[in-house]
Each structure stands twice: as C-alpha cells, then as structure tokens.
Design a protein around this nucleic acid. Structure first.
Lengths: 214, 214
DNA sequence: GCTATTTTGTGAATATATTCACATTAAAAA
DNA sequence: TTTTTAATGTGAATATATTCACAAAATAGC
C-alpha cells in the first residue's frame, strides 16, 4: 500500500531536474547539486540512489546521461501512461495546462462528465458522458485515473473506475474513498493542505511550535 | 520547518468529519469511528489526540460537541484566515470552487495576475495586477498565499510575497522555491503526484514492489 | 452495588526515514 | 609516481511515525 511514496517522488524530482540540466548543457552532477536544487540533502540523494542500486563515480560524481538513463530504466520513461479524468471542470482544465503534463510520459486520453453541456466527443481529448467510462477504459486498457468530481459522487465514480479496470487514482475529492487494498489512491485535499499552512503560520508566529509530547 | 505536517492534516480531517457528523445529528463518536471514516487506525486517532492533550471519556468515547470544540481551540476555528492567490488561471478558479474552500476559515481576498485581460478589480474577489500585490498584502495584513503561476515566474512572485509580508504558501509551481527558513512552503506538484501513482501501479502489477535495500 | 464489558490513554516496541561518520575510490595535483 | 583532495556509498546512529499491549476508567447489565 504505502510503499515509499516519498522516495519515489524524489526520484521523479531528480529526473526532472536532470532533464532540465541536460537541456542547458550540463554534463555531470554531484549529489550536492541535486540536493541543492531540490532542497534536500546530499546524503539523502545518495541514500535514495543506493537503495535503488543507482551508482555514480567517486570523486567525479554522476555522469548526467548515465544517471538519467539509470533513472529512466527504474521509473519507466518509455511507455506513455494513459490517464482519464473524471470531472471536466476547472481542475481538469488546470491539469491539462499544467506544466509538462502532456509530455513526459503522461497522456490524458479522455475526460468524463455527467453534464451533457460539458461533453464534447470531438474535443481532443474527447469529453464523454460518464456512461461511456466503463467501455472506454476497458477497451483502451487505461489503468490510471484522476478524480476531479464533487465529493458526493466521488465514491461511485471510483467504484465505476475500479470495475472498468483502473488500478490507481489521484483523488482531489475531499473525502475518504474506499477501495480494495491493492488499489492505489493518492489523496490531494487542497483545502486541508492550505489550512495546514495557515495553521503552521499561526502557531509559528506566536513563537509557538505545537505542544510536544511530554 | 517540517513539523508534523501529517499529524496536523489529520487533525483537520477529524474536524471535518465531526462537522459533517454533527450535521446529521450524531452526538458522540469513538476513536474507531474516526479511524473508519478516514482510513486510519483507532490507535493513531487516540495517539494524535493524546499528543495534543485532547481527551475523551473512557467507555463512552468522545462527546462530539466537546471534541469539536477542543479541536477548534487547537486549530483556531474562529479567526478567518485571509489568503491571496497569485495567478488567475484555471487552477485558481478550481480552488475558488473547491468544496467548502470559502467557508471554514479560509477567505480568498484577492487574485493577482499579470495579464491585464484577466484583471478585474470589480470582481469579487478582485483580480488585480501583480504590481498591486505588495500594497494590498501589506495593507490588508495577509499572511497566506497560493502560488498558481507558471514555474518560471514562481520564484519572483514568491520573493514579492515574502517582502510584502506573506508568511507561508501553498505552491503549485513544479519547482523548488527558495525562502527563509521560517517561511513555510507546502509544495503540491500535481504531475509528480500523478506520476507516482502511475509508477506504483506499474511496479505493483508486475508482482513487483521496488527493490528493497539488501 | 457488583461484575462484565467496552473504550480511552499511553509507555514500550516496532517500523520507517533521515542523518552521521567514515572507509573507499577516482581524479587532480605535485 | 606518489600524495592530496573531493567525491561516493553505506553501516550505524538518530529521529520520527506508527502500532502494540495493556492498565485505568466509565458505563451497562445483572
């Protein structure tokens, strides 16, 4: 279930940085370079690599192309991952425009919405009625979904996705969704994330830091 | 800096659930109820409460109103937290519509954008040019921001926010932002989060789980 | 009012993640 | 060549988070 999500997230961040670095002609990097770029620590970087068997060169650091291909092999760069989005509202639009969402291995193949006005099968990607979700997903073998519908329909949309063959989702509905144990849900509760920042600001500014376990 | 973000996030989730539960007439809950509702464990719930000095009643669980007011006191329900959003694109629109974003302690007081076409001071909340950010924030004493601008302007917007008096942000720009240590940044890299799900699906389905440290 | 039951609260144990410390190695300098 | 230097790679130590196990308390039943 949980399974080192943070570590994997960092590996993706390393790769992202390397792609950028490569594009401006950098040929080799150090654990220190990566740490600096991502606000992490050099040890953390090396430990992450060590954990996945990624190696560099002592004294000379990491040869960029080599490191990048090691990461690519690990993270599976080649195959494009198809994804559907349930809910064709502003969030879906935002995701479609999000920096680099389309390139880099992710392809939004369809949106689904139960509002006929929003549907448009001619659009690219097509915006289809929810009724089509099952057939579309099972035919096209899509395994990845995004839930961007109101919370009160989120569970039923998820259930539909599961039977259609989706294996994991990024969920923006602010609600706890039930799913089989081998189904992966990554919850993004944007309001809670913002409230958390608000809380931390408040408590920190009053010299605070919350009560520690005594 | 980091500071138990997850724990605080859970506390907010508890509160959210309690508000909902109260609205349908529930009078008391057990750690088990909360765990079930959020996909957590009863021990985790009680440990969280214990850490913050929140207490219930043995055998009878938690009296809902009482628990809610304890959480409110801790999380600071009363004061509305003002927030500004930099970038008036789809993401900002999505946030404005996000379930319950407006009620529950968060008030979006202004959006800022450098595209004159998007600006509209008459809108509620007003959409203002970036140039007005400093004055607006410092006058209105806003401490919380959201960064929803393209990554290549994110750092300069953040710098502007910092001098204007913002104390923490929710950052959607997929880039590592530099800020003073006492400034709180909560990074939401939506693409990486989605890629992480994609990765976990791929590795899990091939009976996988990534290589363990040997 | 006594007993059985259920639930809290928490120290101890475990699991997970991060950092430290340093041996090892490759390159650069002498 | 030999020495110095700057980097990796990783076991051990630490820190953090979660789960276990169970004593203590309150309620319900008898």
């Amino acid at each position: 279930m949980r399974l080192a999500k943070q570590t994997i997230l960092r590996l993706f961040q390393y790769r992202e940085f390397l792609i950028l670095a490569k594009s401006i002609g950098i040929k080799n990097v150090y654990s220190d370079t990566l740490a600096e770029a991502l606000g992490s620590s050099a040890t953390q970087v090396r430990k992450d690599f060590s954990l996945f068997g990624i190696t560099g060169n002592k004294r000379a650091g990491y040869q960029l192309d080599d490191l990048l291909s090691q990461l690519n092999e690990l993270l599976g760069k080649n195959e494009k991952q198809k994804v559907i989005i349930a809910g064709a509202g502003n969030l879906a639009k935002a995701l479609m425009q999000y920096e680099g969402f389309k390139k880099e291995g992710i392809e939004i193949v369809a949106l689904f919405d139960n509002d006929p006005v929003k549907c448009d099968p001619q659009n690219d990607p097509p915006i289809l009625p929810i009724e089509d979700l099952y057939n579309f997903v099972s035919e096209k073998q899509v395994e990845l979904g995004v839930i961007a519908v109101p919370y009160y329909v989120a569970q039923q949309i998820l259930d539909l996705m599961i039977v259609a063959g989706i294996k994991g989702v990024l969920n923006f509905a602010p609600i706890y969704l039930k799913a089989p144990k081998d189904f992966f849900i990554n919850d993004m509760n944007l309001r809670l994330e913002l409230e958390t920042v608000a809380y931390l600001i408040k408590t920190r500014t009053k010299a605070g830091v919350h009560k520690e376990s005594s």
